[in-house]
Design a protein around this nucleic acid. Sequence first.
DNA 1: CGGTTAAGTCACCAACCGTTGACTTGGAGG
DNA 2: CCTCCAAGTCAACGGTTGGTGACTTAACCG
Lengths: 187, 187
Amino acid sequence: MPEIRRRSAPATRAAILDAARVRFGADGFDRVTIRDIAGDVGVDPAMVIRYFGSKDALFAEASAFDMELPDLTGLAPEAVADVLMVRFFDVWEDNAGFLSLMRAAATSKVAADKMLELFSRQVAPVLGSAAVDRPADRAALVGSQILGLALSRYVLRVPPLVAMSQEELRTLIGPVITHYLTGKVFE
Amino acid sequence: MPEIRRRSAPATRAAILDAARVRFGADGFDRVTIRDIAGDVGVDPAMVIRYFGSKDALFAEASAFDMELPDLTGLAPEAVADVLMVRFFDVWEDNAGFLSLMRAAATSKVAADKMLELFSRQVAPVLGSAAVDRPADRAALVGSQILGLALSRYVLRVPPLVAMSQEELRTLIGPVITHYLTGKVFE
DNA sequence: CGGTTAAGTCACCAACCGTTGACTTGGAGG
DNA sequence: CCTCCAAGTCAACGGTTGGTGACTTAACCG
C-alpha cells in the first residue's frame, strides 16, 4: 500500500477519485452521496467539491475510460471475436468506470448517450471493419450480446455466468460474435 | 377512454399504479418521486401512501408482471426461439413493468435479485427444457442475449436496433438463440 | 334533506442531500 | 522560531424527499 502523504492535494484528489469509482461502480450515481465517498477517504465532504466542482463533474471523471482497442483490420473474424472479448474482460474486471457508466446509463439519459457515443466512436468502427456488410447493424448486434453479458455477469450476477471462466465464455460466445459479423442476414 | 368516476378508490388506485408504471419505466426508481406520480394523476401525494403504504411497496406492485410463457416442450428449437422472441417483444413494448424492473436492477440489489428470480422461475425452466444439455448454462446464455437486446434497444436506444423491425430482429437473433440451446453450428 | 363515512386535501415533520463560505491547522521556507 | 499559504475542517444553507396526522369535502343512504 503506497504511503499516503498527509496534506498532499494530488494524493487526496486521487484517493477521492478512486473511492468514487468504487462507489459509483457498486451502487450507481443516485444511490451514492458525496458524504459516502468522503467518508471512505476519511475526509470532509467539502474537499470533494473543492477538487471536482460538483457531483456530476466527479462522476464524469470517475466514469471516463478508454477501450484502447487495437487495430484489427485484416484479422480473421474468429480472431477478431477472441481479441475483442479478451479486451472486454480486462476492462470490465479492473476498471470500475465501465460498470459505473453502465449502471448510470440505465436511469440517466446523459449517461446513456455517453455510453452510446463511447460505443459508436471506439467499438463500432473496429467491429464494423470486421463485418462483411451492414457494418452498423452487425456492430450493434455484437454490442447487444456483449452488453447483455456484462449486465448478466457483473450486475445481475446470474450464477451460471458468474461461475464460468473467461475462457469458457469466450469459447461459448465467440462463435456468436463471429456469426453476427459474418453470417448471412438475408435469405 | 373509460369514464373516471370521481371519488372512486379503486379507480384512483389504478390510475396511480398506471402512472407509477410509466414513470418507473421511463426514469427508474430513484429519479421518480411520489410527488411526480401524484402530479401525473392530479392527486395529493398522501393518496399514494394511503393506497400503497410506501414508495417501495408501490414499486414492487408496479414492477410486478408475468411472462406467461406457454409450454414449449416438444417444439423444434427454431420454433422455440421464435415463439420466445415474439412473447418478449410483447412484454417489453406494452408492459412498463419490465423496463422498470430492469432499470432498477442496475442499481438496486433487491431489484436485481427480483429480476434474477423472475428469470430463474419463469424463463429458465422453459429454456432449459429446450436445451440439449447443461440447461442452466444454456438458459443463462440465451438470457444474456435477450437482456442485452432489451437494454440496447429500449434503454440505450442504439439506433440500428431501434430502426429494425421485430421481424428483422427475430430473423437475426433467432438463430443465435437456437445455437445457444442446441450447440448447432451456423451455416 | 341531513348525517355518516370514505375519499381527498393540507400543512408539516424529520431526515438527507449538494453545496457554500468562513474558519482552523499543519508544514515548508526564510 | 515565526510566518504564511495551501490543505483541511466546520457549521450551516436552501431545497427536496418520503411519510404522517388532522382536517375538509363529496356522495350515498335512510
